[in-house]
Design a protein around this nucleic acid. Structure first.
Length: 205
DNA sequence: AAAACAGGCAACCGCTGATAA
DNA sequence: ATTATCAGCGGTTGCCTGTTT
């Protein structure tokens, strides 16, 4: 999978536009960001096809949309995932699976891409590591629904009342105070790492 | 000091569902 | 009912940077 390790690169057939050199790819420049930002400021979100064309950017509509949603949008939060967000992601993932956009809705300012990356880099790796040394930890944690708001077996209760965007910050202390060895707190996550840069002050533009 | 390695993350790709014609 | 187009989603890739050897 990881071409960094395998050295195998997947061949990609360039589209006609790409071959003609009319579509730009790769990292966005500040100029492009400004153009897109100003265009959306003046014309509003949506109609990405026309955004891509009318703004004069040599980008696809998908690229424009992604850049806006993941980076330029004013309400996008920068900086590390907080402890509360971390726990919420774990809980929501246990319930929703890889529905990143759904999970993102419960984390204001966080993008599905950000959460997905976070899960893959931080959580999934730890789960693999800890599962190899203690396979039962996860099952034990998720099956023990008394102390967690959402569990893997909590399929029927869905979103009505148990958890919602308005109640996302509740109940984390309950889990942390439990005497049980939770993989999602003890194994996964050295808390101090996540609190390092909470006050980071990134500029969007 | 330099090379190799690994992690983090932005961006791309392909697929799917919704909607309009 | 069918087809075309658009928007959104999840998976994957590849670059950049920090760490280790």
């Amino acid at each position: 999978m990881d071409t960094k390790k395998t050295g195998i690169k997947k061949e990609r057939i360039p589209s006609q536009k790409e071959e003609e050199g009319t579509v730009r790819k790769g990292p966005w420049t500040m100029e492009e960001d400004l153009i897109l930002f100003n265009y959306i400021l003046n014309h509003g979100e949506g109609l990405w096809n026309s955004v891509a064309k009318a703004s004069g950017l040599k980008r696809t509509e998908k690229s424009c949309r992604l850049r806006w949603l993941n980076y330029l949008r004013p309400d996008v939060r920068r900086g590390n995932i907080t402890a509360e967000e971390h726990l919420l992601i774990i809980q929501l993932h246990a319930k929703l699976g890889n529905r990143w956009s759904k999970i993102a809705k419960y984390l204001p300012g966080r993008t599905d891409n950000e959460i997905k990356n976070f899960w893959r880099t931080k959580i999934q790796r730890h789960v693999k590591m800890s599962s190899s040394k203690n396979t039962n930890n996860i099952r034990h944690c998720l099956g023990n629904s008394q102390s967690s708001v959402i569990t893997a077996t909590d399929q029927g209760s869905s979103s009505k009342g148990l958890i919602s965007p308005a109640t996302t910050t509740t109940s984390f202390h309950v889990m942390e105070q439990s005497n049980d060895s939770y993989w999602n707190v003890e194994d996964i996550w050295p808390l101090q790492l996540l609190n390092d840069d909470l006050n980071d002050d990134h500029q969007v533009i």
